[in-house]
Amino acid sequence: MTALEPIGYDELDEAVNHLRLSIRTSELHGSICGFLAANGRLPKRHVLTALHLQAGSNAVAEADQDVLDQVVAQSAEELADPELIFEPLLPADDRPLPERADAVVDWCRGFLGGFGLGGPDAHSRLSEEGREIMQDIGAIASSSLDFSNEEEDEDALIEVHEFVRMGAMLLFTECHIPNQPSSGTLH
């Protein structure tokens, strides 16, 4: 048996378009990651149901379902990986800055929604740092972005992306390891 190639943004985007979901690709991935971070269980073949999403078409094609199932498995594995390999699925760096920035906002919005669906007591298990990270992700999710200096804006997006990436892993860890305080600070 050969290892599956990781699902990237474009593959997930294709599945989202086929399924005619009411959310964007990055928001879907954020929802999956938030749900997993809150210790939610996403059973195979029931990802959309668990996230309270419905495909715009009557039937979900096998290929699209396989992509969703693989993204769930891949995300859970990456969030738990001690080598910190997790990456939010976002448009490639060659896409326009506003598109990539909007995708980060969408991802954060999805993460918050998924986290809320993942477990009723997930938020209460968070440390003070974890609660602050959730507040910051909330601030990003409600942001309206303006762009003025491309180089500075690009640097700011890189910083926000890294914060979101590390924050998601920290929140996952806090909700999966009982009574485990976070180690180090996230800046």
Rank of each mutant, 00 (worst) to 15 (best):
S183L: 12
S26Y: 04
M1I: 04
E78G: 08
P96G: 09
S26W: 04
G34L: 04
E150I: 10
I7E: 05
E11K: 06
R45S: 13
S143M: 08
P82Y: 13
R24P: 03
N179V: 06
S31T: 07
D93W: 05
E62N: 05
I137V: 14
E132H: 12
C108K: 09
E132L: 14
Q180M: 12
P88R: 03
L97T: 12
N149C: 10
E77Y: 09
P181Y: 03
A50Y: 07
A50T: 09
L145Y: 04
A3K: 11
G110Y: 06
A63H: 05
H187K: 08
N149R: 14
L51T: 01
Q54M: 10
L117T: 00
G118C: 04
F172W: 12
H123E: 15
G119S: 12
Q180C: 10
H176P: 07
P82L: 15
H123L: 14
Q70S: 11
Q74S: 12
V60S: 11
P120C: 01
V16I: 13
L68F: 12
S127I: 11
S124A: 11
T173H: 12
S142P: 01
L79Q: 03
M166R: 13
D66F: 11
R165C: 05
S124F: 05
V47I: 15
I32M: 08
S183V: 03
M134L: 15
A80K: 00
I158W: 02
I23L: 07
S31M: 15
S75Y: 03
E152G: 08
G114M: 02
D69Q: 02
P43K: 09
P96Q: 12
A101K: 01
I137C: 06
A55R: 03
A55Y: 01
G40F: 00
T25I: 07
E77M: 11
A15P: 05
N149D: 15
A122G: 08
G30A: 00
M134I: 15
P91R: 09
A63R: 06
I23M: 06
L117G: 00
G30S: 01
R125S: 11
H161F: 15
T25F: 06
A63F: 00
D94V: 08
P178H: 07
P120E: 11
S142C: 08
N179H: 09
